[in-house]
Structures are given as structure tokens and as C-alpha cells.
Design a protein around this nucleic acid. Structure first.
Length: 882
RNA sequence: GGGCGGUUAGCUCAGUUGGUUAGAGUACUACCUUGACAUGGUAGGGGUCAUUGGUUCGAAUCCAUUACCGCCCACCA
């Protein structure tokens, strides 16, 4: 026999199989027209990334589907890779530079980018090794990086193409300015947070007058950029001022009072200062009234030369000083508290500054049309379904996408300006006479490369060649995507748009938006709060399989997961249980082959135990397939957990132990049958716990050294083997055993005491079950004797109860606590009477009888007679005692 | 402000088109070291199914209402 260690050494096992799988290139895929394909792309993690709980689901979920499909005979291709993550990476390297007291400007663009590449080579791969540790069955030969040559070429091709189609344009617009990373970011890269700030009421005097308008603002420091005061045209208070001019504090500049519907009469004073260069809405008002936009802040969010004495102050210092000065000038009326939302940068957590600048945009409306249609028509399905609505809402109100970033790390925009003429050149390759041209300094949003990911990883080029690209033709569209819901707009929606624009085909068929993992109080896990353990630490402590199993077991479709470390025990214990069951079966097989060497094998006939486990097993297979299809992954793992633990280990193996000793001539056949089930169990479980199942699969049979369970076939279902009758009958046996154990326990008899029991079945079926399982019941309940009788002498030697149609009498050898017994039974009688009462009432209700279906009425009648029967039996028992 | 999802045992969740005395895991309690497993076994206690009203012979399930929680979108200076 092969050695079977007492414990599962996951540390060793994980390394061993990782190496084995990768060295043998098991998961490398090639177009194979003989087989159906299943292709998936990984949501490329940031090159700066380190494994967190979001990644765990990003990786584990597709791995489950890929491993499963592979075992079902599909040609599976799962592409890994990384995202260059413009802002995050650049900030990381800038920080390192800062330690040496340098800035990127000291190096210059080329040197700096060289340094980032060096950083990437040195530190950028950690996430990939963590993905390896997770057991991801990805095709490493296809690993891609969004700045790879091919992918970069695609980015330029698409930019040029969209530019020439008129879908990319340059505009002077208010954008979300991140003053920390000093770049524009898109609307999808900011979030809003509620904060309490001050609302300042400031007097703006009318030209040559003692009259003034009081405006309310939270941003007094931008008043230098005011080019109007706006009031609502219907506001009686200000009607007479419209068209007049007011004097801007500090600057002695006259600005007009304009009327605009945008102004809310109720808010503040009803008079609003308009700063077109530093507020989105003000910008729009400005355009309507043809106002000048004056920029008063620098890119670092400091006041610029336009602000005179305040120049160089940051906005908070400036605000303080301006208020002081306004007080001195008696221009400040009052200050109130105001709770409002402010925009924060996702990446740097800096407060976003609306900022007027030249940026590049993609017109989205046209691209959105087909992408909406693809989801509407069911070409792409979202799970859970409610994301469909969220998607439509966003797509129907889509806004242009700001794609330029004032960074150095990324794809530089393929636009060149002629030094003399200012002419614009937009091509994939740089101009032939580069000395006459200057390339646009900006780089593209990182998502401008990710939205092409499912195309570009398969070598798409947006050229004639695509027609003969067998990789693209075979693998695209992909089948499945499993992102977090937070990137539905940033990534998922945009991939759909790009895919349809460039191939006319959707990039994937089904999208499962996985749960977000929170801490046990429901708070989002965050580094700054430190409210979680690192998944890698937990994997180290409990094993990767345990971690994978737990997290999937806990993740229901469509809601968040509350996770804490203790819960990892669910997976750890399950893995241990599975391990021990296998070890036991192999020990047993060994022992049996020795013990029964000289015993001839008899013909074996299936019994109730066999047909029951067969039925349970096939039901489980059907359920797991169904749950996987519906993306109910927690149900999928739960049904496997229950089958393995409750049915297989608690009952089937326990019964088998007894059966082999009862039927030595069948012992070999029985243990082989059990091991066969176990082998199948390993194969169903492999997609979710790959390491331990691989290890066990090799342990339970010799000669598998050059094979892997990941290519063993997925067990097939035989629906004809599902028999409700067998399951019901077996359920009755279980109840018999449980009641018997209860009876002992309730009467204070230790499990170790071998009791004598009489049973009185009132039906032939009941009698048959007891006879058939008599020896099992005796063993499982530790009984000395189990005798079937027709009636009981009414001495007081027995504790009794009723289960189904069988009366149980436990001999107490004179130790009966009759009072306690009577109490117990009369309590049950009371319950049953109450229940019978409701049934009687129902069954005498004319309305019920006439309106409910026959089936339901029959069912109720059956319940009624069963309850009556049991009640009779119990009442007889009480009589006997008294 | 608009939209969506949720509320079932201490906790995490099931509950199929309305027809169980409402289930599981976990936690808790008791007993058990019985030759796979104490990361285990056997059993037990624990729920007015968030509120109020309606439809129905019958509601955890359908409808409406309220409350609370969560998410998304927009954003008022």
C-alpha cells in the first residue's frame, strides 16, 4: 500500500503540485478544433498589487469553472496578466525617489520611466506568485502585461482609429483634478464623502452703491476667479439687480449679475458666485452667459499669481487668511455649518479639485448603443441579474470619458503637434521627421488598455490579419468573467463597448459579479483600518484549500461576505475530514484484503444502504451542476459539504464498518464500492480544493504518478439512480437510531451501557426495516439485544417512545424514573394534541376542502392519521405506566 | 434627491410557481477519548420569519405601508 500520512501537509503539498502543474505545462492551451473551448481572462491585477480578499474571489471563482470545464473535456484557456496601473505605480516610484530627496523632474521623463520598468522587474511580480499559490490553473505561457509591445500597439491603433472616426476629441473642460498625483482622473475614479464644512456669507457691493448682494460659498478662496454673480430669474429679491455689476472683493473688479435657472432660490441667500474655472456647474453657467473662465489655482492646488497677496498659499491657508481679511473689510456677514458631499480621489484619497484644463475625451454615446443592445438581447448575461439595471442606467446616461492623464508611466498619446504650423498628426507610428514635431505629453488612462484586454491577449491587431488569427478565432469571445462589482463601469462596460466596436462580437458571455468581502462587522476591509488579516497569512495558517473553500462557502450570490479568521476553520475542518475519510478507507482496504484472503467472494446484492447512497450521490451531482450554472457558489459548496460529511462520513462509512464485519465474503466488494465513491467525491471537489484532492487522488491508487486529477473526467450523473423511496426508507432507519439514542440519553443511561430493547412495529414495512437493520441498530446504539415483539407486558421496566410506526421500549433494569418518563410522554402528547387540533380544524373547514387541491387535502389527511396513530400509541404507554 | 437590494436561531445563510409543527452550518450546553478524524462523535436548548395592514380556505413566501441596514447614481453653492 502507498504511504498515507496521518495529516495533510498542505505546505509541502501546495508547492509540490504547483511545480508539477506548471513544469508539465498542464494548463497550457492551444486552439483545438476537435474540442469545445472554454476561455477566460483574468481581471489583470495592478502590477503594484499584493493579494487581498478581492483577488481571492477574482481568482478562485474562475478557477472553479476552468477546472470543472477542463474535467468535462473542454479545451480550457485562462489568461493571466497584470495591469501597469498608471497612477499607483508612478506614485510608488516617486515615493522611492523622494527618499533620496529627488523628484521625477530631476530625472526627466525617459530616465524616470526606465526606473519604473526596473521597479516593475524587481517588485512587480509578487502578485503573480500569489496567484500561483492560490492554485490558479492559468496558462502561464500567455501571461500579458498592459504595457507589452503588442498591447501597446493595440492601444495606439484604437486611439488613432477612434480619433479618425471623430470619437476622440480634445477639449478645454472642467475635470476632476487630483492635486496629489497632479493629473486628471475620470468620473469613475472618484467617490463622494459627506463632510461638514463652513458656508461663508460674503457681501458683494453693487457698482457705485451702498447696496450689496450677499453670496454664500464654501470656497471663498476661489472668489478671485468669479466672473459673475448668478440669481434665479424668478427671485423677486434680486430682480432689480440683474444686469448690474458688483464689485469683487480684493480685486476691484466689476462682474455682472446674471439670471440663471440653475440657481436654487431656497439655498443660502439665493445668490451664487460663479467661478467657471473651478466648478463644473459654474462652468456651464459661464458658457450660457459667455463668461470668462479665470484659473486661480496651480496644479498643486495653490493660489496663483492672480490672487495677489494670497499667492502661493494652499487652499486651506488661503481660506483662513481670506476670511480674516474679509472680516477686516466688513464684508463677511456670517458663517454657518454645512454638511455636503465632496469628491475624493479613489487612488490618492485627495480632495478632488474641479479644474479647467485641456484634456482628451472619448465620445461614448455611439459606443454605448450596441453595448446596451448586447445585454438587452441576452448575448451577455449578468449574475446577479440586478446589475443589468445598474448597467443600463449608467450606459443610458453615459458621459464622455476623459482619457488623458498628466503622468509619465503609461501609453503616451499618439498625437504630435507640428512645431511651426501647429498641425496635428495622429498615427500609430511617430512622424518621419520627428525633429519638427512634439508629441502630446499626456499618457492614456490605464483603463484605455484594459478595455482591450480580452482582444489583445489573443493577438488581436485590428487589421486583416485578425481573420486568420486562429487564437483569436478560437478563444474569442471568452465565456466567463468574474470581476468585483466595483469595476462594472471602469472595466466591464468598456470592454463590451470595445469588443463590439472592433469585432462586432461581445467579449464574454456571462459575468458573475462576486461578493465584496467585509469584516465581521460588515465594514469594508481596508489597509488604513487594519480590520482584517492578510489572506496570505491565513493561507499559510490554514492552507490554501481551506481558505478557498471557506470563502466560496460564505459567498452567496449577490450579497457581501462578512468574514473573520475563525470562519476559515469551516474549510480547514472540511479538508481534514476529507483527508481522514480517505486515510480510513485505505487502512480499511488494507486490513480487509489481509483478513479475507482465504474467504471466497460471494455474489453481492445491493441493499437499501447502496440504493440510498447512490441516490444521494446522484442528487448531489445534479445539485452541484445546477448551482454552478446559476452561480450559486455557496450552495454548490454547501451541498458538497453536506453530502461528504453527513451522508458519506457520518452514515455511509459508519454503516460500512458494520457491514464488512457482518459480511466478510462481501467485504472486498464493499470497500471497493466505498473507495469508488470517494474517488468520485475527489473529482467533484477538485475544482474548489485543488491541492488536497490532487494529493488524495494519488494516495488512493497507485500508478497515478504521471497523471493529474485535473484531467480526470468529471463524474457523470445517472438520474435513474435517484430514488425517493430509498431515501425515505433510509430516513426512517436514521430516525429509529436517533430515537433510540435519545431514549437512552433521556433516561440517564451512559452510551457505554449495552441496553436491552424491545420494538413493536405496527406495520409490515416498519417490521421489515427493523429486521433488515437490526444488527446495524444494535451496533450504532450500543445495544445488547434488540427484540421484535407484538405486545409488551405492562411492567414498569421500560422507558418508551414512538418513532414513525414503531414503538420503542428500552429496558431500564429497575432504574426507571417513572415520573420523569410520564412527564416526558405527556408533554409530547400535549404537543401532538395541539397539532392534531389544527389539522382537524383544517379538514373540517368547508372552504379548505373545496378550494385546496386534492393533493394537498390528501397530504393533510395523511398527517392527521399519522398523528392520531402516534397519539394512540403514546396514550397506551401512559396507561400502562399508571 | 433618484434607483436597487436586504431584514428568517447569538452569528452566517437556505427556504423552489403560496400548502412543514420554519431548516442547515456555526456558536452555545451535556455526554463520549468507541481502532479515520477532539480540526472528532452523539444528542440538546434556541426563531411572533423587521413593522402594520391587505389578498387567500391557507402567507416567511403575493400586494401595500413604515422602520432600519447596505449598494449604485446624481449632486445644491
Amino acid at each position: 500500500m502507498k504511504e498515507f500520512p496521518k495529516n495533510f501537509d498542505y505546505h509541502t503539498s501546495e508547492l509540490k503540485w504547483q511545480k508539477y502543474w506548471e513544469d508539465n505545462k498542464l494548463y497550457e492551451s492551444h486552439p483545438n478544433t476537435e474540442k469545445p473551448k472554454y476561455s477566460v481572462v483574468i481581471p489583470p491585477p495592478n502590477v503594484t498589487g499584493s493579494l487581498h480578499f478581492g483577488h481571492m474571489l477574482d481568482i478562485t471563482i474562475p478557477d472553479i469553472y476552468c477546472r470543472r470545464k477542463r474535467m468535462e473535456g473542454f479545451e480550457v484557456c485562462w489568461v493571466p496578466g497584470m495591469d501597469h496601473a498608471g497612477i499607483a505605480t508612478q506614485i510608488m516610484v516617486e515615493k522611492e525617489l523622494a527618499k533620496e530627496g529627488k523628484t521625477k523632474y530631476d530625472l526627466g521623463r525617459d530616465k524616470f520611466n526606465e526606473l519604473v520598468w526596473q521597479w516593475k522587474e524587481k517588485n512587480g511580480g509578487t502578485i503573480l506568485n500569489q496567484i500561483r499559490k492560490l492554485g490558479a490553473s492559468v496558462d502561464w505561457s500567455k501571461e500579458r502585461f498592459t504595457l507589452d509591445e503588442g498591447l501597446s500597439l493595440n492601444v495606439r491603433k484604437v486611439f488613432v482609429d477612434l480619433y479618425k472616426k471623430g470619437l476622440i476629441y480634445r477639449g478645454n473642460r472642467i475635470v476632476n483634478w487630483d492635486p496629489v498625483s497632479q493629473t486628471a482622473v475620470s468620473d469613475d475614479e472618484i467617490f463622494h464623502e459627506e463632510r461638514t464644512d463652513k458656508l461663508y456669507f460674503i457681501k458683494y457691493y453693487l457698482e457705485n452703491s451702498d447696496e450689496f448682494i450677499t453670496i454664500a460659498t464654501t470656497r471663498p478662496e476661489t472668489l478671485f476667479g468669479d466672473t459673475a454673480v448668478a440669481v434665479n430669474p424668478n427671485d423677486k429679491r434680486y430682480k432689480s439687480y440683474i444686469g448690474k455689476k458688483v464689485n469683487l472683493p480684493f480685486l476691484n473688479k466689476l462682474i455682472p449679475v446674471v439670471a440663471d435657472d440653475y440657481v436654487d432660490i431656497e439655498f443660502g441667500t439665493g445668490a451664487l458666485k460663479i467661478t467657471p474655472a473651478h466648478d463644473v456647474n459654474d462652468f456651464e453657467v459661464g458658457q450660457r452667459h459667455d463668461l470668462e473662465a479665470v484659473i486661480v489655482l496651480t496644479k498643486e492646488s495653490k493660489l496663483n499669481e492672480y490672487t495677489g497677496e494670497f499667492k502661493g498659499l494652499d487652499i486651506f491657508q488661503a481660506r483662513k487668511k481670506i476670511i480674516e481679511r474679509l472680516k477686516e473689510l466688513d464684508l463677511l456677514v456670517k458663517i454657518e455649518d454645512l454638511t455636503h458631499n465632496i469628491a475624493i480621489s479613489d487612488r490618492t484619497k485627495a480632495v478632488i479639485e474641479p479644474y479647467l484644463s485641456e484634456q482628451w475625451f472619448v465620445k461614448m454615446k455611439e459606443l454605448a448603443g450596441p453595448a446596451i443592445e448586447a445585454v438587452k438581447s441576452g448575448d451577455i448575461k449578468f449574475y446577479p441579474d440586478r446589475y443589468t439595471k445598474i448597467y443600463f442606467h449608467w450606459m443610458n446616461n453615459i458621459r464622455d470619458w476623459c482619457i488623458s492623464r498628466q503622468l509619465w508611466w503609461g501609453h503616451q498619446i499618439p498625437i504630435w503637434y507640428h512645431k511651426n504650423t501647429g498641425e496635428i498628426y495622429c498615427e500609430v507610428d511617430s512622424p518621419k521627421d520627428p525633429e519638427n514635431w512634439i508629441q502630446d505629453e499626456d499618457v492614456l488612462d490605464t483603463w484605455f488598455s484594459s478595455w482591450l484586454w480580452p482582444l489583445s491577449v489573443f493577438g488581436w491587431e485590428n487589421s486583416e490579419k485578425d481573420k486568420t488569427n486562429e487564437w483569436l478565432n478560437y478563444y474569442y469571445p471568452t465565456d466567463f468573467l468574474s470581476p468585483g462589482p466595483d469595476i462594472i463601469y471602469l472595466w466591464v462596460a468598456r470592454m463590451i463597448m470595445a469588443g463590439l466596436e472592433y469585432t462586432g462580437k461581445v467579449p464574454f458571455r456571462e459575468v458573475y459579479f462576486h461578493s465584496i468581502i467585509r469584516d465581521n462587522k460588515g465594514i469594508k476591509m481596508s489597509k488604513t483600518l487594519g480590520n482584517y488579516s492578510e489572506p496570505l497569512d491565513l493561507m499559510d495558517k490554514y492552507g490554501t484549500d481551506a481558505m478557498r473553500f471557506t470563502i466560496v462557502y460564505l459567498a452567496p450570490l449577490g450579497s457581501d461576505v462578512f468574514f473573520d479568521e475563525d470562519k476559515t476553520q469551516i474549510g480547514r475542518n472540511f479538508v481534514t475530514k476529507l483527508w481522514n475519510a480517505g486515510r480510513f478507507l485505505m487502512m480499511m482496504k488494507d486490513k480487509i484484503s489481509e483478513d479475507t484472503r482465504d474467504i471466497p467472494h460471494a455474489d453481492y446484492k445491493n441493499d437499501l444502504i447502496d440504493s440510498w447512497i447512490e441516490s444521494r450521490y446522484n442528487s448531489t451531482l445534479i445539485n452541484t451542476a445546477k448551482y454552478l450554472k446559476e452561480y450559486k457558489l455557496n450552495e454548490y459548496t454547501k451541498s458538497l459539504y453536506n453530502f461528504v460529511w453527513n451522508d458519506f462520513c457520518d452514515w455511509y462509512i459508519e454503516l460500512m464498518k458494520i457491514k464488512v464485519s457482518e459480511q466478510p465474503s462481501n467485504a472486498v466488494r464493499i470497500i471497493d464500492g466505498a473507495i469508488n465513491y470517494y474517488d468520485n467525491i475527489l473529482r467533484i471537489l477538485h475544482p474548489v480544493i485543488p491541492y488536497v484532492t490532487e494529493e488524495l487522488w494519488h494516495n488512493i491508487e497507485e500508478g497515478r504518478d504521471d497523471k493529474s486529477i485535473s484531467f480526470a473526467s468529471s463524474p457523470s450523473v445517472d438520474e435513474t439512480k435517484i430514488r425517493a423511496g430509498s431515501e425515505d426508507d433510509f430516513e426512517k432507519v436514521k430516525e429509529l437510531v436517533t430515537s433510540m439514542r435519545n431514549l437512552k440519553k433521556d433516561n440517564g443511561i451512559a452510551p457505554s451501557v449495552r441496553s436491552n430493547v424491545l420494538v413493536n412495529p405496527s406495520t409490515a414495512e416498519g417490521r421489515k426495516l427493523v429486521e433488515q437493520f437490526s444488527s446495524y441498530i444494535k451496533k450504532l446504539c450500543n445495544l445488547e439485544s434488540l427484540e421484535i415483539v407484538n405486545k409488551i407486558d405492562d411492567n414498569n421496566e421500560y422507558a418508551s417512545s414512538v418513532v414513525n410506526d414503531v414503538e420503542l421500549y428500552l429496558s431500564l433494569e429497575g432504574n426507571l424514573d417513572s415520573e420523569k418518563q410520564a412527564e416526558k410522554i405527556s408533554k409530547e402528547i400535549e404537543n401532538l394534541k395541539k397539532y392534531l387540533g389544527t389539522l382537524d380544524k383544517k379538514l373540517t373547514n368547508e372552504n379548505f376542502l373545496s378550494k385546496a387541491s386534492n393533493e394537498v387535502v390528501e397530504k393533510e389527511k395523511q398527517k392527521q392519521s399519522e398523528t392520531k396513530d402516534k397519539l394512540d400509541k403514546l396514550e397506551k404507554m401512559v396507561l400502562k405506566k399508571s
